[in-house]
Amino acid sequence: MSTPLLSVKDMRITFHVNGGRDQLHAVDGVSFDLASGESLGIIGESGSGKSTIARAVLSLLRITRGEITMEGKTIVTPQSPGKPGNYGVQIIFQDPHAALNPRSKIIRSLVEPLEIQGKGNASSRRDMALEMLAKVGINRALADRYPHELSGGQKQRINIARALLLRPKILVADEATAALDVSIQADILNLYKDLQDEFGLSFIVITHDLAVASYVSDRIAVMYLGRFVELGPSATLATKSAHPYTRALMSAEPEALPRRLQKQDRLVLRGEIPSPVTPPSGCRFRTRCPIATDLCAAEAPPWREMSPGHYSACHFAEEVMAGKPLDGSDKPQNLESVK
């Protein structure tokens, strides 16, 4: 196998909370590769650490363990944090409004990063910006407008254009469509696919929306309390998931279907995500898992390859993959995880 474009190895990111008294491992031993032109979805609930991964890959924060390499070259270690924007990774955020200066015309926001990087002259920068606007489906006439004159979807396209002007190899989308209406979201997701085809761009799509992740990603990583619990091709996760948390997420997300086609045995997880400051022993999901046993409290499940490219961290991965029912109706409601 050739060298991956991006490789994250055993990354840990620690924050100090409660006035420095407690340590919080927002990301705790995460490894993954991203191939050129590939799209990786990272899904998880709030507090899972997915956005922290995004910011680490951008060098927007310091990692405490592990390393990040790009095309085989080490670019980020705990000792030497990388320089943001310097190695071909760009990001777009959830709020399309916050990322644009309200007092600057669109064109200004677009050429500014080019100026900072010292690319071309004033007129060539403007041409590059206008060309990129066309590529993301924005009329050139809007270049001289101000952000407040545009819709949320248009602004998000402009944010994408700005990121692309710096010719990144990887675009990280951190909940980039979460604030948009569905019909606008569809446009942006289609745009991701077009950009992947046209520029061979790789994507890391951070989202809480499983359907969005499935739609745009070749592979999906499922995160829970700072760790990956499952990683595999999107189609495999949708049909043959090997982790109860993934199955619960799939089951929890309602699909717009007539009643007769809706799943009758919806699995509703009890309790809430525990505090990452004091994660449960053993398997971190066990406090909410419908099939947890004593083994799960005693030992953290190993990260195992279930089929080529499909990994899971569950003691009962084989059973889950084989379709073990996850009703858990005999389990008492877990009170301690409810804070």
């Binding site: 569905v182 289609n190 949708a238």
Partner: peptide, 13 residues
Amino acid sequence: VPRKSVSSSRLPS
């Protein structure tokens, strides 16, 4: 609306 069961084709918008 993107659906997890249907994939790859373009989303109509």
